Amino acid sequence: MKLSSLVFSDPSPWPPIEIVSQNERYAAAMLSNIGACNSEMSAISLYIYNSLITKNFFFEIAECFHKISMVEMRHLNAFGELSVLLGADPRLWSRQNGRMQYWSPSCNHYPTIIGELVTNALNGELEAIRKYQAQAQWIDDCKIQAVLNRIIADEQCHVEIFRLILAELNGEALIQSAEYIEAEEESELTEDEYEPL
């Protein structure tokens, strides 16, 4: 695997971080993107951890996690800026069952076997894409939709990288199994993260 041949961020230009008007429901959705269990903060913290523990034996994979974490930091910042514009306090928190809950490192799973570690990351990217696509459908603000779609494009790059890594490590069978999240690793998402009340 040649790091120089990988695309960590979609080459399309970023739309401006703007909104049409303030909306409490949209603000709650953006907060969930920065501080829920399925969030940019979870991805960043997990990828930093993954980079640290793989560095000695899988240097190129560690570098991939490091580079992807930097892209996720840009996503975190974009969602944070949207939260502010929408009238929310951009702490690392989200609305869960009608209450604000702070993000916690316990949101993440921490497998240490290399194949499981990459599979876990792939599943997280697929779940993030599903979440952002759902938000882009119900949020009726073309400017927020543009940002969501631009972030989805980056996440799709990350999916391809993790699939490539898995193909090199373990072959096609593991890639197919990675598309399904095991029962014990089911998402802890609530409806608030997709379409807040």
Results as ranks from 00 to 15, higher is better:
86 L>T: 00
101 Q>R: 13
75 H>Y: 05
68 I>N: 09
56 N>G: 03
82 L>S: 04
85 L>I: 11
61 I>L: 03
109 H>W: 14
75 H>N: 06
90 P>T: 11
107 C>L: 14
62 A>I: 07
61 I>D: 07
129 I>Q: 10
123 N>D: 03
53 I>P: 08
69 S>L: 14
123 N>P: 04
97 N>C: 13
126 L>R: 13
104 S>N: 15
64 C>F: 14
116 E>Q: 09
108 N>S: 04
52 L>Y: 15
56 N>Q: 08
96 Q>M: 01
99 R>F: 02
63 E>S: 12
107 C>A: 14
102 Y>M: 00
104 S>W: 13
118 V>Q: 08
66 H>A: 05
78 A>F: 08
66 H>K: 06
87 G>V: 09
57 F>T: 09
72 E>T: 13
94 S>F: 00
92 L>S: 01
102 Y>F: 07
74 R>T: 03
87 G>Y: 02
59 F>G: 13
55 K>N: 05
98 G>V: 06
104 S>G: 10
88 A>R: 00
62 A>L: 02
93 W>R: 07
116 E>I: 01
115 G>R: 05
101 Q>F: 01
126 L>W: 10
104 S>I: 11
129 I>W: 01
124 G>W: 08
109 H>Q: 15
83 S>P: 06
104 S>R: 15
57 F>I: 02
58 F>E: 10
118 V>Y: 10
117 L>M: 07
96 Q>K: 00
79 F>M: 07
72 E>G: 14
75 H>E: 04
67 K>T: 06
71 V>N: 01
105 P>Q: 12
57 F>L: 03
92 L>I: 00
54 T>Q: 11
78 A>G: 10
129 I>H: 08
105 P>I: 14
120 N>P: 01
90 P>V: 04
121 A>T: 12
107 C>Q: 02
114 I>W: 04
65 F>M: 07
79 F>C: 03
94 S>N: 10
83 S>T: 06
75 H>G: 06
84 V>N: 02
116 E>W: 02
125 E>N: 03
81 E>C: 09
105 P>N: 11
109 H>M: 08
124 G>Q: 11
119 T>N: 06
71 V>W: 02
75 H>A: 02
76 L>C: 00
86 L>S: 05
69 S>E: 06
101 Q>V: 08
129 I>F: 07
89 D>T: 05
60 E>M: 10
73 M>W: 06
125 E>I: 04
66 H>S: 09
73 M>I: 05
126 L>I: 10
117 L>F: 01
88 A>L: 02
60 E>C: 05
83 S>E: 04
53 I>M: 10
88 A>H: 01
83 S>K: 00
64 C>M: 12
119 T>K: 11
89 D>Y: 07
113 I>H: 14
102 Y>D: 00
57 F>H: 08
110 Y>T: 06
101 Q>L: 03
55 K>R: 03
79 F>Q: 03
63 E>F: 07
70 M>F: 13
71 V>T: 04
